[in-house]
């Protein structure tokens, strides 16, 4: 069920015009330390390439 929600949410956010790379999902088990580090490295690299978010950001 969660997987199905993620699949539709990612497509939907992309559709309304958020950069697809800003919504990232993956599965990590609590015992997969190395994988966790790799995923986070990958995510930061993707986000850094996109630069700061300007959409759906509330100015307080």
């Amino acid at each position: 069920m969660a997987r199905r929600k993620f699949a539709t949410l990612k497509r939907f956010l992309d559709y309304i015009g958020l950069e697809g790379d800003r919504t990232i999902f993956t599965w990590i088990s609590a015992s997969e330390g190395e994988r966790f580090a790799n995923v986070i490295k990958g995510v930061t690299a993707k986000v850094r390439a996109l630069g700061p978010a300007t959409k759906l950001v509330k100015k307080l």
Binding site: A7, K10, I24, F25, T26, V39, K41, G42, V43
Partner: peptide, 14 residues
């Protein structure tokens, strides 16, 4: 519900 063969191409696997 969910099916075993639901698409998973949105999952990030570096």
């Amino acid at each position: 519900r969910a099916k075993e063969h639901d698409k998973e191409d949105f999952v990030f696997n570096p």
